[in-house]
């Protein structure tokens, strides 16, 4: 299945772009997406990453759906 990913902050540098599309396995969870990211891109293993869908933070075990739009967020640094 295909998911549309938009990254923020330093994650854009790791992905090489602010927006990418990934082909992922059916049934993958938010935690699985995080693992996919860290396996395929040079992301620091200890970097906390939040995943947002429909303006809501996803729990680790939430299932990703085909054609989902996901937002990947590193630790915030506003102000």
């Amino acid at each position: 299945m295909v998911v549309h990913v938009q990254a923020f902050g330093i994650l854009k540098d790791f992905l090489g772009s602010s927006e990418v599309q990934w082909n992922l396995s059916d049934g993958i969870t938010a935690e699985g997406v995080r693992a996919f990211l860290k396996k395929n891109y040079p992301v620091h293993p200890g970097l906390p990453i939040a995943i947002v869908r429909d303006n809501r933070y996803l729990a680790d075990d939430e299932i990703i759906q085909d054609q989902d739009h996901l937002f990947l967020m590193p630790p915030v640094s506003g102000g």
Binding site: F8, I10, V52, V76, S77, G78
Partner: peptide
């Protein structure tokens, strides 16, 4: 508010 904002509100700076 500022302490919470710095930890939770999704804004990033370069």
């Amino acid at each position: 508010f500022l302490n919470q904002f710095k930890q939770r509100v999704p804004i990033w700076k370069k």
